[in-house]
Amino acid sequence: MATGGRRGAAAAPLLVAVAALLLGAAGHLYPGEVCPGMDIRNNLTRLHELENCSVIEGHLQILLMFKTRPEDFRDLSFPKLIMITDYLLLFRVYGLESLKDLFPNLTVIRGSRLFFNYALVIFEMVHLKELGLYNLMNITRGSVRIEKNNELCYLATIDWSRILDSVEDNYIVLNKDDNEECGDICPGTAKGKTNCPATVINGQFVERCWTHSHCQKVCPTICKSHGCTAEGLCCHSECLGNCSQPDDPTKCVACRNFYLDGRCVETCPPPYYHFQDWRCVNFSFCQDLHHKCKNSRRQGCHQYVIHNNKCIPECPSGYTMNSSNLLCTPCLGPCPKVCHLLEGEKTIDSVTSAQELRGCTVINGSLIINIRGGNNLAAELEANLGLIEEISGYLKIRRSYALVSLSFFRKLRLIRGETLEIGNYSFYALDNQNLRQLWDWSKHNLTITQGKLFFHYNPKLCLSEIHKMEEVSGTKGRQERNDIALKTNGDQASCENELLKFSYIRTSFDKI
């Protein structure tokens, strides 16, 4: 039985969820670079991206490699990797027998973001014989899940209580170790020597080791999670996991709180800001991140802002960003909400898709409305799209047979046209069989910064309504002859009103 693990408890099935942008060198404390989270699957090609990484700022997932063999891993080693800020997950990587050479110096898994409450997941690794993470000293947050690894031993010899604050939620089941077939031998045991430290858990006094050649490092209890030197002297209180010299914040392997210019500090002093819960960055760093993602459509890219001495992905609820200094300031009234469309555009074809934009005031991208039916549609669209004030790209209304009016965009005031449909149009209306009105132009103002209007096959939309939009939106004169079809717009509506004058002759039985 794995020490510190839980057996036999019912657990939810383990679901495996399925960018080499360097964020800056980590400095003297770390020998390499800070790398983003990685999802490495199918083959070993991307694994080489770990070569210079000291910190993975995010998670590391290595999974679904069915053609790899043990010899493929023999020359692979990433000794610079010290810390993973989120979680480490391995799933069905064939041929991998140990992690001792792959990650010989991995010391800390912070667990800032977890995989279903777990910071370390080893699942269905069919050839893994031992973990071998002999320098792993601290899992700051989260638990361990090690399950269905039929060859995995050296679990009962690990004292997880020396690595985690609590072992109650560890789930370590259905491994070879369960069948008591392992016969784990710690260093020196074969020669009758006791080389590794022994600890007591559940009444068992057991030597602690990761492999037959690597003991588990056990520091004096007084050192807590700070770690200790090879001689057993406690590291500085700002260290986490390990250090090369005692009581020196510049000799830590990793930091308990924050890293700044080669030393570990309790908090980031001005003019620095907390970033990702582990390091200090200056304003320029946060500003660069903001600008890199301002026009990016890459998933996970955030326009970072500053709030409460932190550089964070977005302002919290009730705050909006001051564009001059990136500071989050309290909103006066309802907060603006910028919604970034991942692929640059979004099609609204149902109430469900409209709900995804609920509360958005600025759309960074283009909207395509293609709704053919739905219950209580006008009210639903207004509830979900009615706060949109600005669209950076274009607005396209296409084959939306259920629409009679666009009044559900009740606050839309600006279409920038930074991206144009077919390279020309910022407003595009095609084949809307029941569209009769755009907006009530006596109450609604709309500016279209650039781009043209396109109207074709809107049989109940009168040309007068379209011409009014040209005047109000500032697009009059931009359109070419064929942009607004004269014969297919309003051709099934009563669009022309003329005053009919009647004269009559009164007659009676005795007068003409």
Rank of each mutant, 00 (worst) to 15 (best):
E147V: 12
C293D: 03
W160P: 01
H127Y: 03
P197Y: 08
L106K: 00
G192M: 14
R162A: 12
N309Q: 07
F78Y: 11
V206H: 08
H226I: 08
F116R: 06
S244T: 04
A198D: 11
Q61F: 06
Q216C: 09
I158N: 05
M83L: 12
S225P: 12
I109D: 00
C186S: 07
R92T: 04
C301L: 05
N42E: 14
K176G: 07
V305N: 04
P330D: 14
S54N: 13
V34Q: 04
N117T: 03
Q204S: 08
C264S: 01
K100H: 15
L260C: 01
T329P: 02
S54R: 14
G262P: 02
N322T: 05
E238F: 05
C328G: 02
V265F: 04
H290C: 15
R141E: 12
P313V: 04
C315N: 01
R69H: 09
G142C: 00
F73S: 04
R162P: 11
G142D: 01
F66L: 15
N242V: 11
S143Y: 02
S161M: 08
D165F: 14
N42S: 10
C264D: 00
D277S: 12
H212F: 11
Y30S: 09
C223P: 02
Q299K: 15
I312P: 07
R141V: 07
N135A: 12
G32N: 14
C335V: 04
I306K: 01
C315V: 11
K191I: 13
I146H: 00
R69C: 12
N135I: 00
W278P: 01
D184Y: 07
E266S: 15
D39M: 13
G58P: 00
L136Y: 01
F275V: 03
G300Q: 06
S161K: 07
H302D: 07
C182W: 04
K224A: 09
N149A: 12
L240A: 07
P270S: 12
D277W: 05
R69T: 05
C293S: 02
L88I: 15
P249G: 04
E51V: 08
P249R: 07
G227L: 04
R256S: 07
I158W: 04
A254D: 14
I82V: 06
L136A: 01
R263F: 13
E97I: 11
F123P: 00
I84L: 02
C315Y: 02
L76M: 05
T85P: 00
R279W: 04
Q245G: 11
P271C: 07
R69M: 06
T107I: 15
I163A: 01
P316A: 04
N309F: 10
Q61A: 03
H226P: 04
F78C: 03
M125Y: 00
G203L: 09
P104S: 01
I185P: 13
V34H: 05
S296M: 10
P336S: 06
K80P: 01
S324P: 15
P330I: 10
Y87N: 01
L240E: 02
G300L: 08
S161E: 13
P313L: 04
V34M: 14
V305A: 11
L64T: 10
Q216H: 10
P246C: 08
R141Q: 15
E238Q: 13
C219Q: 01
L136S: 01
W278E: 03
D184N: 08
C293Y: 02
D169T: 13
L289M: 15
D277M: 09
F91Y: 11
C153A: 04
V121A: 05
L155M: 11
V121K: 00
G32M: 09
N308Q: 12
C215K: 08
P220A: 02
N295K: 14
C255H: 00
A198V: 06
C35N: 00
H236T: 02
N322F: 13
I158R: 07
D277Y: 12
N282T: 07
S323C: 05
A190E: 05
D75C: 08
C235M: 00
R92V: 02
C209P: 03
H214I: 07
G58V: 00
N175I: 12
V253A: 09
C235R: 00
L64R: 06
T85W: 01
F66Y: 13
I306R: 02
T189R: 08
G58K: 00
N322S: 13
T229W: 06
N322K: 06
V108N: 15
C239D: 00
E151L: 11
P70A: 08
N138D: 11
V34S: 04
E238V: 02
Y134E: 06
N170Q: 05
F115S: 07
S237Y: 11
I172P: 13
I201A: 13
Q61R: 05
T85Y: 02
F285D: 05
E49H: 06
E33A: 15
G95Q: 11
P104M: 01
M38N: 11
E130T: 04
E124S: 09
G95P: 00
K251R: 12
G300W: 06
F285P: 01
G58E: 00
S161A: 15
L152W: 01
S77I: 09
I40Q: 02
C53Q: 00
S166R: 06
N150D: 06
N195V: 12
I82M: 14
R145C: 09
E168M: 07
K224M: 04
D86L: 00
P31F: 12
N257R: 11
F285R: 02
P336W: 10
R256T: 11
M321V: 15
P316R: 04
I201M: 11
I222M: 04
G132D: 03
L76T: 02
G232R: 04
L240D: 08
I139D: 01
A156L: 04
M137P: 01
I146A: 06
M38R: 04
N282V: 04
D277N: 15
I146W: 00
E124N: 12
G37R: 03
R256F: 07
I82K: 05
E181P: 03
S213P: 12
F283G: 04
L233H: 11
I163D: 00
Y134L: 08
C239A: 00
I139K: 01
H236Q: 02
L44M: 07
F115P: 02
G183E: 14
T329Q: 15
Y94P: 14
H48C: 03
N309S: 08
S296T: 14
N325Y: 04
V121Q: 01
I62T: 00
F91H: 06
E207S: 06
Y319P: 01
L106Y: 00
V305H: 04
K310T: 06
N257Q: 10
N150W: 06
C219E: 02
H307W: 14
L133I: 11
N135R: 07
L114N: 04
G192H: 14
E238H: 11
S77V: 07
F115M: 04
R92E: 00
N138H: 10
E97K: 07
L96N: 01
N43Q: 11
S317Q: 15
